[in-house]
Amino acid sequence: MSILHKGDKVGFIACSDGRDRSKSNIYLTLENILAQFSVHAVYAKTFYAVGNTPFSGTPEERAAELAELYQDKEIKAVFDLSGGNAANELLPSINMEIIKENPKPFVGMSDLSVLNNALFTLTGVPNLHYQTTNLLGPDSAFQMELFTKVFLTDWHNPNELVTFPYTWLRGSSMEGTVIGGNARCFLKLAGTPYMPNPEDKLLFLESLGGGPAAIASYIAQLTQLGFLERCNGILLGTFTELEQSAGMPTAEELVLAATEKFGIPVAKTAKLGHGYDSHCLPIGMKLQL
């Protein structure tokens, strides 16, 4: 199957922090890039920040606009171009039945890890951990090729979306349905009905900010929630601040120490996270690594 075809429409929305209207040229350029693929963008009313607030609308307004994009039969994927902190405000107001009845991928990352996982948990509809604005970045040529492969090429098995290299830190294989994303944002779901069950899952973790102590705290919380004991394996992406500062211990060392008693497989990739060269990862699809 191919997610998009020539002539299709995609929705642009900001379910987390609203976008800065003074930077509208960025999104116009992105529109033009998608037009090269004969894909056309439709903006939600809740895209740009309103007034002096960081929000593109109230949580209820943002959730209603999200529902509109799902109900529009011409829109084949929802691209959330935001990030920040505010995505979890929407959760009680999202009409999950509309998403079940109109399944299409929600595409976003960072704070959108909240929605990637919550929408999958309550609807069973898989989503994509991907930053669409990377099409504008310094690795745009690579990203154009990746976009073609992920969104515009027929694929029959989610494993065809494993376009990124990875190395094994423990074990040599793992299989399960992928959950997770940005560690800080994923943990906003803890204790809520939106948090996925870790049984038979592959847990993906990455982070933009945070030194060793912050990453250790995320791993401790996941341990206390029972995630590291019950999941089938862990895939680590990039931990930008920690890796750029050469902080010690590393995320890999912290995860290996926390999971030693469970013996679960752990793999690492430098191509999933907040880098301009990051690949795409399906959330809610079964992969075998």
Rank of each mutant, 00 (worst) to 15 (best):
S2T: 13
K6H: 14
G11N: 02
D20C: 00
R21K: 15
S24A: 15
N25R: 13
N25E: 07
L28S: 10
T29C: 06
L30Q: 05
A35S: 14
A44Q: 06
Y48S: 02
Y48I: 00
T53Y: 07
T53P: 05
S56K: 04
P59T: 04
E60D: 00
A63Q: 03
A64R: 13
A64W: 08
E65Y: 08
L69K: 04
L69W: 01
Y70Q: 05
Q71T: 01
L81E: 03
L81Q: 01
S82C: 08
N85K: 11
A86L: 11
N88S: 14
L91I: 01
L91Q: 08
P92H: 12
M96V: 10
E97G: 00
K104C: 02
D111M: 10
S113K: 08
N116V: 01
G124C: 06
N127G: 07
Y130I: 03
Q131L: 12
L135H: 03
L136D: 08
G137L: 07
P138W: 07
S140G: 03
Q143E: 07
M144W: 00
T148L: 09
V150Y: 06
L152D: 04
T153D: 06
D154M: 00
L161G: 10
L169W: 00
G176V: 05
R184I: 03
L187Y: 13
N197A: 04
N197W: 00
P198A: 04
E199K: 15
D200Q: 15
L203N: 08
F204Y: 15
E206G: 08
E206H: 15
E206T: 15
S207R: 00
G210A: 11
A213I: 04
A216G: 11
A216H: 09
A216Y: 00
T223G: 01
Q224K: 15
E229S: 13
L235D: 08
L236V: 09
G237S: 01
L242D: 02
E243M: 13
E243I: 09
Q244E: 12
S245A: 15
M248Y: 13
P249M: 09
A251Y: 04
L254V: 01
L256M: 13
A258F: 07
F262C: 04
K271R: 14
K271M: 12
H274Q: 05
Y276M: 12
D277N: 14
S278W: 05
H279I: 02
C280G: 09
P282I: 07
I283G: 10
K286W: 11
